[in-house]
Design a protein around this nucleic acid. Structure first.
Lengths: 204, 204
DNA sequence: ATCGTTCTTGATAGATCGCTCTAGCGATAG
DNA sequence: CTATCGCTAGAGCGATCTATCAAGAACGAT
């Protein structure tokens, strides 16, 4: 029943999930071994199968859901902290670019690499990534709708935002440049601005 | 010196590259074994190391460059076949969506999965993917510039296009839906249209 | 104190990984 | 014919992979 910190140290399970999230994000799912995860987590090997009887796949699913929720919260926080949605979008892309540079172009989307790897090879994990993306779309749609954009336009704006963000991450990591994030962010901000300036365009 | 077809069958090297391209695209780089590649290619295992003394990494680099060039040609062909750039963009996204559906959401970008996997773990392969992306940016910039868009705006439009495309691929494969490709394509088409309608906006 | 449960721990199995190595086939040149 | 060379062919190496297993430590409940 130990969920954690009598001491300041996170529980073994938490450390495994955290280490798995970091390694899956940077090296992908198939490229990361359980041995490497437990080494990074400073956890005994057997604990993986104690907490995740379903093995690597179950750990992967939990990592996807956990870090997906965390990243969604990051987006919501950026949107709520900003005076308007356009600024929120700009801030979010700028923050993503900053993180990317600070981590040596390692930390971008927490689930994209895994998502592409498993999309055609592992149905349970594919479903986990689909659930996360669906949740992000709902989050963004709600945020833009609250700002006065029609439901349908808000949804399409969110999908365009996520597409631009994920794609910019691919280019940015490969090219080791933040230019794609800047261009993509400005592109989405412009579209959001247009929808807010001429609100009739986006009533759905 | 056999580059191929006295018979109709492609050379062993070609079959290995083709099989590698298909498997890396669908399952990723670390998720694909050399044994699986030679089985798919109906080639002897030893031939891999005959043609690619550098092993899996060298094969990966050749696959990236080959299929990157082929995909670039596909883009150029779509742009040249279309009456105007906006239609070209729409056709290209629509064609990508069609391929995705026809292959059961397996065949999207030929190098994206590999690019994310190796971006922080394998510098030679990362450089190969960076070269391909740089080539695509040059291709798109030239195509849009030829249509009358200023050099700088053409470059940014191309980066926005590639970001939207790659990101839409991620979402589409995970969600098993073409909606992201449709939304992203329309978004890029709209931006291209705006740059062509008001050409002064894009003189750089 | 004793029991039961939860969690820790690492050795180990069985499969697969990338890669090396040697042997041999078949076409061509001399 | 013989020699050479490009390529075929696959057995096998050490390493690593996921997963299993049995045993012990920690701890609360009775």
């Amino acid at each position: 029943m130990n969920a954690g910190p009598a001491t300041g140290r996170p529980s073994t399970k938490e450390r495994i999930v955290t280490a798995g999230a970091e390694l899956f994000r940077r090296q992908g799912y198939t490229g990361t071994g359980l041995k490497q995860i437990v080494a990074e987590a400073e956890a005994p090997f057997g604990s993986v199968y104690h907490f995740f009887p379903g093995g690597k796949e179950q750990l992967g699913a939990e990592v996807v859901r956990t870090s997906g929720a965390a990243y969604g919260a990051l987006f919501t926080a950026a949107m709520e902290a900003a005076p308007d949605p356009v600024t929120g979008v700009r801030d979010f892309f700028a923050g993503a670019a900053r993180t990317l540079v600070e981590t040596g172009y390692a930390d971008a989307c927490p689930i994209a690499t895994l998502a592409l790897e498993v999309a055609s090879t592992n149905e349970p994990l594919r479903e986990a990534t689909a659930e996360v993306f669906t949740g992000w779309i709902a989050l963004g749609t709600a945020a833009f709708a609250q700002a006065g954009i029609g439901e349908r336009a808000a949804r399409e704006l969110t999908i365009a935002l996520l597409s631009a963000l994920e794609g910019a991450f691919v280019l940015a990591r490969a090219l080791r440049s933040t230019e794609p994030l800047e261009v993509a962010g400005e592109s989405v901000a412009a579209r959001a601005s247009a929808l807010l300036t001429a609100p009739d365009a986006g009533r759905g």
